[in-house]
Design a protein around this nucleic acid. Sequence first.
DNA 1: ATAGACCTTCCCATGATGGTAAGGTCAAGG
DNA 2: CCTTGACCTTACCATCATGGGAAGGTCTAT
Lengths: 138, 138
Amino acid sequence: MNIGQAAQKSGVSAKMIRYYEQIGLISPPSRTDSNYRVYGPDEVHVLRFIKRARTLGFSVEETAALLGLWQDRSRASAEVRDIASGHIQALEAKIDELQGMVKTLRHLVHCCAGDNRPDCPILDDLAGTPAGSQTKGH
Amino acid sequence: MNIGQAAQKSGVSAKMIRYYEQIGLISPPSRTDSNYRVYGPDEVHVLRFIKRARTLGFSVEETAALLGLWQDRSRASAEVRDIASGHIQALEAKIDELQGMVKTLRHLVHCCAGDNRPDCPILDDLAGTPAGSQTKGH
DNA sequence: ATAGACCTTCCCATGATGGTAAGGTCAAGG
DNA sequence: CCTTGACCTTACCATCATGGGAAGGTCTAT
């Protein structure tokens, strides 16, 4: 099948398939006489693997590692688990960071009257107004 | 003061200060005869505002809006609150997404023996093994 | 034969940041 | 006065993953 159909079946855009080929994540497929890339079910399977890993937030580099392990018959599942565990930790750190932001913002929004007065504790905070004039006591 | 000191006082790198000037987030400062940028306390204050907003996860575009409101004496704080509220929602959506990933990954890691057998439910999931053969029942 | 859908490669853009290189400037000390 | 080192300037390139588009070739159906 051509790249368009492989894209449709795998959920990876044709553009990205070429990109993955270019960076060596997937191997170059065979070509027709007219230089069209030709894919078979196996290639689509690989693309779907990549798609799923990317959807789960693995970087392309991590995906490459997982792909290598997937295609390695003698792989140790412990390696895979380590990659996944490390990724979970990274995701959780990111979540914590975002939650910290949300907490601060919610506090600020809570302190904000939301009316038409020019007083705005949110802006005051961003401006670095000496802590205590607006938000002290919370 | 020169850009280096402004960077140090504001926490925004000299590189980024020039970038912010280039994209119009801040106005071009005056220059010395030798073409050095010159900053005063007001500019540093603005930079700190920007730094804080970026730290809270506001995009540069959102930061520009907040900055405009901050500098507008007749602003309505409701506008500010709307921007912040919208940002909170966006952050929470991102958190949900990440938590979904973590949940899936934790499930997979939990199902993974982590030994040296080539069986690996994580890879099986990524490969799109028909649901039910490994993970059903959880 | 022609239209339209597909393919090819190549270049550019994003967003926010860092790096580097080539050159100008300034302040301190010999 | 001159050197040294720290600073500044602009300009370009890289990141990471993705999309957009142009210019041109190919295939399929009418």
